[in-house]
Amino acid sequence: MKKLAISLMLSLGLVAGADAGDAAAGKKIAGACAACHGQDGNSPAPSFPKIAGLGEAYIYKQLMDFKSGERQNAIMMGQVAALSEKQMQDLAAYYNSQTRTVGYAAEDKVELGQKVYRAGNTATGVPACMACHSMDGSGMDAAGFPALGGQHADYIKSQLVMFQEDKRANDNAQVMRDIAKRMSNKEIDAVSSYIQGLHR
């Protein structure tokens, strides 16, 4: 737990420093993003993330990571290749200004999902998700921790599995990789479903 706390503090420092973007300017260049993420950032496809209200610092970091190759995804790497840092800041500001839609959690997964999200699993060293992503899933934008509430369960599950398998490695101080590797597949499935129905 001490190692996790240190990792979280390090990640706070690594995210700071991005300038605020211009949401109006971001809206003007967001057309290409709409095909996968929806015009307002609420993707209708469960395999593509909802980026509305995700967190400006987090969105900007992901765009920068796709551009640098730190985060691998052929589609996104192609999309950001020609974007300037200012354009990425503007897109982050625009999508963060949008309101996230909320889905529903599967009834048979709520109990376990809620337990993992709110209390973690002390036996295996899994911390509560809400420690970084907040009780209602609204995240902590200043720290770069994304808002998860209402996110597609399929997308959350796929990202946790990628962290678990070291196929996604752009998490600051390996925080998400360390956590996901301690989670069972059943916990990942349940918490992903719970997050889909989580809202303010």
Results as ranks from 00 to 15, higher is better:
87 Q>P: 08
86 K>C: 02
69 G>T: 12
79 Q>G: 01
44 P>V: 04
75 I>E: 11
90 D>Q: 11
44 P>K: 01
58 Y>K: 03
50 K>H: 03
72 Q>K: 15
63 L>G: 10
46 P>S: 12
88 M>G: 12
52 A>S: 11
48 F>R: 12
56 E>M: 07
74 A>W: 04
68 S>I: 07
87 Q>A: 00
49 P>S: 10
55 G>S: 04
62 Q>T: 04
49 P>L: 04
83 L>M: 14
53 G>A: 09
69 G>Q: 14
71 R>L: 11
52 A>I: 08
65 D>E: 14
85 E>Y: 02
85 E>N: 11
70 E>R: 13
85 E>W: 04
67 K>F: 12
46 P>A: 13
79 Q>E: 07
81 A>Q: 13
78 G>P: 00
89 Q>W: 02
70 E>D: 12
77 M>H: 01
53 G>Q: 04
58 Y>V: 11
90 D>C: 06
75 I>A: 11
56 E>T: 06
68 S>C: 09
66 F>P: 15
58 Y>P: 09
73 N>G: 10
53 G>W: 03
72 Q>S: 15
60 Y>D: 12
81 A>I: 05
55 G>R: 02
85 E>L: 08
62 Q>G: 05
67 K>Q: 15
78 G>M: 08
69 G>D: 15
82 A>E: 13
71 R>K: 15
78 G>R: 04
88 M>D: 11
60 Y>V: 11
47 S>C: 09
54 L>Y: 01
78 G>N: 11
54 L>H: 02
68 S>K: 13
75 I>H: 07
82 A>W: 02
59 I>H: 00
88 M>S: 07
48 F>T: 12
71 R>F: 04
63 L>C: 14
89 Q>E: 14
64 M>E: 10
60 Y>R: 14
70 E>C: 11
62 Q>R: 02
71 R>Y: 07
66 F>G: 14
61 K>S: 04
76 M>D: 00
59 I>K: 01
87 Q>G: 06
57 A>G: 06
54 L>V: 04
65 D>R: 03
79 Q>I: 08
89 Q>I: 06
71 R>V: 06
81 A>W: 02
53 G>E: 02
69 G>P: 12
68 S>E: 09
64 M>F: 05
84 S>L: 08
71 R>M: 08
59 I>G: 03
76 M>V: 00
51 I>C: 06
52 A>T: 08
72 Q>E: 15
68 S>V: 10
86 K>H: 01
61 K>N: 03
88 M>H: 03
81 A>N: 10
53 G>V: 01
76 M>Y: 01
45 A>L: 09
64 M>C: 09
60 Y>F: 05
76 M>H: 00
87 Q>Y: 00
